[in-house]
Structures are given as structure tokens and as C-alpha cells.
């Protein structure tokens, strides 16, 4: 019943696991675990990139995989871990707003994105038939995670996971962005990360907490 070649099955499995990770992130309460999940997400991305590279034989995808490995599996999580250590938010938990409800909304988001991707994948190559829907879902789910989080740290993690989703989508739909764009994005993310790190320290100095709830006091009118 499955006419798909093994590499595609593997790609599909990667995609499904990415989706599973997104849900895990949505329901995770501990910041440290969130960062670890992000690292796992990054390594899945590496595997997926390698599969596509091997399938299509495009050498620049290998480079891209290497870049992802360096940046998303090692550099960013390490940076985040250091931040956590320095800010001492190791065991920081946060009240997730009714995880079951959030996951239910997440489920609807998944249905929406699968439906959205269906007409596109109908006209596309088999390789991306299904992964595009998942990529959209991962992006939207990360967005959802950003909305439901209050701690700055978790928001940044969700933001990075959104970027991962975007990358996955680009990779599966068009076999990766041009190298220049990819390098640019990678640098952007790195820089954004560094800026956010500085930002964290500033917020904490100002409010003694990383709770973004405090930012509400910055508004002009009551």
C-alpha cells in the first residue's frame, strides 16, 4: 500500500516528529526542557536536510545541514543554556494557560494548515506533498506557543522554533533557499539571539523578573 521510497518515508517520519515536538513545546512547563526540545528539533531538521540532500544530490544542502547542525543543535541551545545559567532561571516554570485547551486549539491549527496545504500539495511533487502542511503547522503552532507564554525565555524559544518550521518548509518545498539567503537568515537568527540575550538582562535589571507581564506597565494609557 505504501509506494513511497524509503527516504521519503523517513522524511515523513521526521516531519511527524517535528509536529510532535511542537506539541510537546506547547505543553511543556519548564524552560530548560523547552531548550532541550529545541535542540532535538534542530537535529531532526539536520536529518531531514540530509535526506533531501541525498535524494536530490544537491551539494549546497549538505552545507546547509552542517550549518543547521552547528547553529541550531549546538550554538543556539548552548547560548540559551548559558543565558539560563546566568539569569538563574533553571527551574523556572510558568503557568501555561490550560494546556489541554491550548493543545485543542493547536489541533484545530493543524487541521487548518493541513487543509491549507492540500491544494498546493495536490499539484506538487510527491516529496513535498505532505511535509508542507506540517511545516505550516509547526510555524503556526510556534506562533501559538509565543502567544500563550509569558516568560521572555520561552517566547524566544518559540520564536526560534518558528524559524525552524520556516526552514523546514522552505527546504521541503523548494529544496532549500539559495545559499546566500540561508546564510543571511542564519546570521540574522544568531544576531537576534545575541540582541535578545542583552535584552533579557535589561528586562531583568529593570523589573527583577523575566515575566513579560511587567512590560504591560510600559504602556502610555491605563
Amino acid at each position: 500500500m505504501h509506494p513511497l521510497p524509503f527516504s521519503l518515508q523517513l522524511l515523513n517520519a521526521c516531519a511527524a516528529l517535528l509536529l510532535l515536538l511542537s506539541f510537546a513545546m506547547l505543553s511543556q512547563r519548564r524552560t530548560v526542557n523547552l531548550v532541550n526540545l529545541l535542540a532535538v528539533q534542530g537535529s531532526l531538521l539536520v536529518i531531514a536536510t540530509l535526506i533531501v540532500a541525498w535524494r536530490t544530490g544537491q551539494p549546497h544542502l549538505y552545507v546547509s545541514a552542517l550549518l543547521t547542525l552547528a547553529l541550531k543543535v549546538f550554538a543556539l541551545p548552548m547560548l540559551l543554556h548559558r543565558l539560563i545559567r546566568r539569569l538563574n532561571v533553571w527551574w523556572d516554570t510558568e503557568p501555561v494557560i490550560n494546556p489541554s485547551g491550548t493543545m485543542l486549539i493547536g489541533l484545530l491549527v493543524v487541521v487548518f494548515s493541513f487543509g491549507l496545504a492540500q491544494p498546493i500539495s495536490a499539484v506538487a511533487d510527491t516529496a513535498i506533498r505532505s511535509t508542507l502542511g506540517i511545516a505550516i503547522a509547526v510555524i503556526l503552532l510556534s506562533f501559538l506557543a509565543m502567544i500563550t507564554r509569558r516568560k521572555a525565555m520561552s517566547q524566544v524559544v518559540a520564536f526560534l522554533s518558528m524559524e525552524n518550521g520556516l526552514f523546514f518548509g522552505a527546504m521541503s518545498a523548494t529544496y532549500g533557499m539559495p545559499m546566500v539567503v540561508e546564510l543571511g537568515v542564519a546570521l540574522d537568527v544568531l544576531v537576534a539571539m545575541l540582541v535578545l540575550g542583552v535584552f533579557f538582562f535589561q528586562i531583568r535589571e529593570q523589573f527583577d523578573s523575566l515575566d513579560l507581564y511587567h512590560l504591560e506597565s510600559l504602556k502610555e494609557r491605563d
Binding site: L107, V111, F114, G115, Q118, P119
Partner: peptide, 10 residues
């Protein structure tokens, strides 16, 4: 139908 085929099993 695209959305229905997803929603119905749910």
C-alpha cells in the same frame, strides 16, 4: 473535500 476529510474522523 479537503477540510471535511480531516475534520470528520475527528
Amino acid at each position: 473535500h479537503p477540510f471535511a476529510s480531516m475534520l470528520l474522523p475527528a
